[in-house]
Design a protein around this nucleic acid. Structure first.
Lengths: 351, 351
DNA sequence: ACGTTTTGTCGAAACGCTTCGACGAAGCGT
DNA sequence: ACGCTTCGTCGAAGCGTTTCGACAAAACGT
């Protein structure tokens, strides 16, 4: 590997001059610049990342804090990651995946103090999250993807759950639905203070009231069978329901299957809207899911930009919060509400 | 941040002694070791990753080369990533996600020469892959997750497609199926030399011959609608088919939906086995998919171990290849073959 | 008791870069 | 022609480690 010394010698300049050409820190005459550039090209010179990092105390690497549950990531999380990675790359940064969950403070402590990372992107943020506290006291720059209960002084990028729920409910109400169920994350998530679960619960209640309709919320596991259980429970608690809002993609498919097996046709008898859903999964269902598509890639990219702005010093507001709602994609599982008579077996031929 | 100097002063030893305590490179008496350790603890000392990297020319970071298509990663790929990340962490390494596809040689050239990464894990390997050639000429240590056409002198970890196809076919044959379709990746993938597509095609043909049964292979897009199109085409080409093997999870769901809509009941009329499938997606379907579950996490971990062995020098065979077959998980979509009469509308009550 | 090895520690030289102060050479106004 | 600023470049001092050669002190064999 050629070093800066080699380049300097070949171009007949000093090492520092080469450095200035590279970093643009000081003005260099066009003539010498060209000579240096040429020498670099001839030698196939590539600056050493470690040396640069040591001297400048910035690595151009940001860490992505992501609890690795052992189970696969959802499509939404994956989109976050790819969005963030791509955005970082375009800004000349690298992205390091760090399996650090809300409780792994020791891990994070090490990561943040060993000087490898310039800043952090924090995913899967709980309403109270030790990682946030730690990063704050260490004052490492960081941006949350998600939100804690108290976002004072924090930079956050998140899905606008309130708006998303409202939009979804409005869609159903617009189709004439008067009784809707909301199938939320598990009660464990709710109790554990998982932000999206809590926020959507509140938003759902608010939306019901605003539109003057009735509804129930049912928490359930994020699996197909969880969805099945939830829809049964919902129909029991609220037999007249014609609309279902469901938080989790997997649960959504379970609901669809269960309704079908119960002799109810979607969307003729019941409409289903899936929240925070990726297109791939929506298209997996048949009919394809009407869904609030999660802006995963965009969020990841936005978070990265916010963090990078902070790092390069031209930081604006340190309390910057950017909320992006999911957008409604009407596909095959939502339609006009049936009149409020007890549904008979679905009329054939309708789909 | 405390430095080694601080620790050395506090413990009353030289800097190099502190270093030896940390790295174990040379013997240190128990007494001084304890003193040094104590000083570290008191100061909350944390070695600087950059300085260490510069001096030792190893970063303890490995890069994961992964084309980011813009679309979300599949569950299998995600499992690879998490498995690799976790395994790296346990060995004291970090994992950096690098969006570098088979063609992005410039990107990779930079990554490999800037000295940030000790080695590479290469994902989504094509039958011929420029990344492999480049890494080879730069002689950076690397391990493939997947295989090129010619694996001479390469370290690979991959799914054992041949075995997986054979197992799947054997499962169907064991249930009495005599005519099976294989819904493969798209013809573009096949033409582009995508390893899994090609290998499974050959393995399927071999399995047909070995078992003395008939079948067709239909390439299709990796989407639900791709699956629908494929199953139609397959039934046209081979009306007597009772078994379907499908490469892609998304396509599998499409196939299930299409069969149901055609009045065929799974698994009574047709059995479906999904290849290289994750449990989450398998459970999304109803009935849940009988599948060859992909050992994603295990593969990622295995690849990492192989790479790390190579890095730490106690490398064994540089041509080490580890093949792991998917394992058959019988769920709800496979069952005994129907007698070979033309099926009438499925008898009710059966499932 | 003697050389000889082994053990434990030290000082200093890298590692390849950034950055700071210095300084001659131009360019400016007057 | 004069000092004054600006421009372009240089040398050297770090950045925080690892690692190598050296060297007392202790342990060994005879």
């Amino acid at each position: 590997m050629a070093t800066m010394h080699d380049v300097a010698r070949r171009a007949g300049v000093s090492v520092s001059t080469v450095s200035y050409v590279l970093t643009g820190t000081r003005p260099i005459s066009a003539a010498t610049r060209d000579r240096v550039l040429e020498a670099m090209a001839e030698l196939g010179y590539q600056p050493n990342a470690m040396a640069r990092g040591l001297a400048s105390r910035r690595s151009n690497i940001v860490g992505l804090l992501l609890p690795l549950t052992g189970r696969a990531l959802g499509a939404t999380e994956t989109a976050f990651v790819t969005g963030a990675t791509e955005a970082a790359r375009q800004a000349g940064y690298h992205l390091m995946l760090c399996p650090v969950g809300p409780g792994d403070t020791d891990e994070l402590q090490v990561l943040a103090t060993q000087g490898l990372l310039d800043g952090f992107l924090v995913m899967e943020v709980g309403l109270t999250d030790q990682r946030v506290d730690l990063l704050r006291t260490l004052d490492s720059p960081f941006v949350l993807i998600g939100r804690t209960a108290d976002t004072d002084g924090l930079a956050c990028v998140d899905i606008d759950f309130e708006q998303t729920v409202e939009d979804a409910v409005a869609h159903l109400v617009g189709l004439g639905h008067q009784a809707i169920a909301y199938v939320n994350h598990s009660s464990a998530s709710l109790a554990g203070g998982y932000g999206p679960a809590k926020r959507t619960e509140l938003a759902f209640e608010a939306a019901l009231e605003r539109h003057g309709i009735t509804g129930v919320m049912v928490p359930t596991e994020d699996t197909a069978s969880g969805g099945r259980a939830a829809i049964r429970q919902a129909r029991e608690q609220c037999p007249e329901l014609t609309g279902v809002l469901v938080m989790n993609e997997n649960a959504a498919l379970g609901i669809l299957a269960d309704l079908r097996e119960s002799g109810l046709e979607v969307p003729y008898d019941v409409s289903v809207v899936s929240m925070v859903t990726s297109e791939v999964v929506a298209d997996l269902a048949s009919p394809p899911l009407t869904a609030m598509t999660s802006p995963g890639t965009a969020l990841g990219a936005a978070a990265t930009r916010v963090l990078l702005d902070r790092l390069t010093g031209d930081a604006g507001d340190p309390t910057y919060t950017e909320l992006v709602p999911c957008v409604l994609d009407v596909r095959g599982t939502s339609g006009p509400a049936r009149p409020r008579t007890r549904p008979t077996k679905a009329a054939p031929g309708r789909r």
